[in-house]
Design a protein around this nucleic acid. Structure first.
Lengths: 270, 270
DNA sequence: GAGTGGTCTAGACCACTGT
DNA sequence: CAGTGGTCTAGACCACTCC
């Protein structure tokens, strides 16, 4: 039985939630274990069912618990984590001068996913649009100037859940020499963006990745098939050419429960 | 007036939340604007006050809204963002061979913060502990072997809120030659970890940052003074010496609403 | 069909904010 | 002091899962 509660002092939902959280952190409740039912909580804590529910809601918000819908709530384990490494940038560059069959085998970072191809639907959507303020600033061009927006998405063929999403912007002026780059029908392009840019004489020399995170919205949770309490990682990648001019920016979203971003920095010798 | 709702179909709390979310995304409600009061929502949507509250709760979970406690709820803006760049690793290495006064001025990444020193309390806590499985694997040493754990924390002197937190692990065998490295009284060490390691002949040649994100817990929200709906970024940094052996790992937490992590990758010329 | 959580009602009382 | 949101009660009804 839990201690007598006085009128003020921590809300009962917090007391319940913290007690359960501690059990999870101490390992008394392991991933996969069922939590106490709502009914058990109400009698154990002598509270209404709503308070018990609010406590469990807190744990769901925090991503510690999932389930429900007729199933008991269970402690969430860490699913398989996909590693996305910044060494991929160099790897892709190395493949630009390989023959097309080689590049075709390699896949692209826009499409990169752990699933066998064929189990996913890939779409690429190109649009010529005026640059938004944000995009224009990042690319160092005038606002409303002509850019091509390329949206990449993959979905699991069975579940229809999104598995990959990114959007990329390139000033049209940089690539209009090669009309094939303006046509989404050429996607997926063997060798990816770096090869595309190489066809108009652009060599990427530097890539800057900016990483932030925010909570997923209800809509995103549906699209990706996420539990509540799963944040999204947002990576803005800015690619620079030989002159240090930004030539492409790309924003990608990754569900944080299945993603580790890896960045390598080599330091100069003393 | 909102349309008639049928019995099945999206829960009313979702309908309310999505309607408000769309207004925010379209800019009809700008950062700082007040949301409708609970009472207004109940009459507009013809629902109970609990449903209205649940809708607002969803928006708070998603970090779109903050306030409350006698104040009206308001649309949350993006606060000032601190940039943490991976170029810092090289920058710190460059300073290792500078005289002590120089290093002292420079500050260290463990302490790095935007606030003037003197407005924050800095603490460093060292403990010799047996390596956990996780730490042992990352460092490539035996489980339970002797490591030094160093916990760094800064707090805002006025608000008492945490502004910085990280924990670092080094195998004791690597640094026991220099007993000063085992004493927390020598913190903050001018020049930081890279200089500390240089005193026992270790040169860091490669740093790998692993970035993940997870929702903040209620306890963390109190410690850091965070709103609900703010995820934490977690960075595990692994530093390698000349032989490619991992010599230090460090886990740092950053509140995602005020942090951008930046990573630079230079590519080799064709 | 029994049991689970998900949604919702219709209130009450409180702490806190602002005037 | 009036008004806000925060917490809580004591239920009801539903969809879903599992047996």
């Amino acid at each position: 039985m839990e201690p007598q509660r006085t009128s003020v002092d921590p809300p009962i939902k917090l007391a319940i939630a913290d007690s359960l959280r501690m059990k999870i952190e101490k390992g008394q409740l392991e991933p996969g274990d069922s939590l106490p039912t709502l009914h058990e909580l109400t009698t154990k804590w002598n509270c209404s069912i709503t308070s018990a529910r609010e406590a469990l809601n807190l744990l769901k918000e925090q991503g510690l618990v999932s389930g429900g819908r007729g199933r008991p709530l269970r402690v969430r384990g860490l699913g398989a984590q996909t590693r996305r490494s910044s060494t991929r940038h160099q790897w892709e560059k190395d493949r630009v001068h390989e023959p097309e069959e080689e590049r075709r085998k390699a896949g692209t970072s826009e499409l990169e996913t752990n699933k066998p191809i064929g189990d996913v639907d890939f779409t690429a959507t190109y649009s010529r649009i005026p640059a938004s303020k944000d995009v224009a600033t990042a690319l160092g061009v005038e606002e409303d100037s002509d850019v091509i927006q390329r949206v990449y998405e993959t979905k699991d063929r069975k579940t229809k859940h999104r598995t990959n999403w990114s959007v990329s912007y390139i000033p049209v002026s940089l690539i209009s020499k090669n009309p094939e780059l303006l046509d989404e029908k050429n996607e997926p392009w063997p060798g990816g963006t770096q090869h595309q840019l190489s066809t108009v004489g652009i060599e990427i020399m530097k890539v800057v990745d900016e990483v932030t995170s925010r909570m997923s919205t209800t809509v995103e949770r549906q699209l990706w098939g996420l539990d509540t309490g799963v944040p999204m990682l947002r990576v803005r990648r800015i690619s620079y050419d030989r002159h240090g001019t930004p030539v492409e920016i790309s924003d990608a979203d990754y569900p944080a429960d299945r993603t580790v971003l890896e960045f390598m920095t080599e330091l100069k010798e003393w």
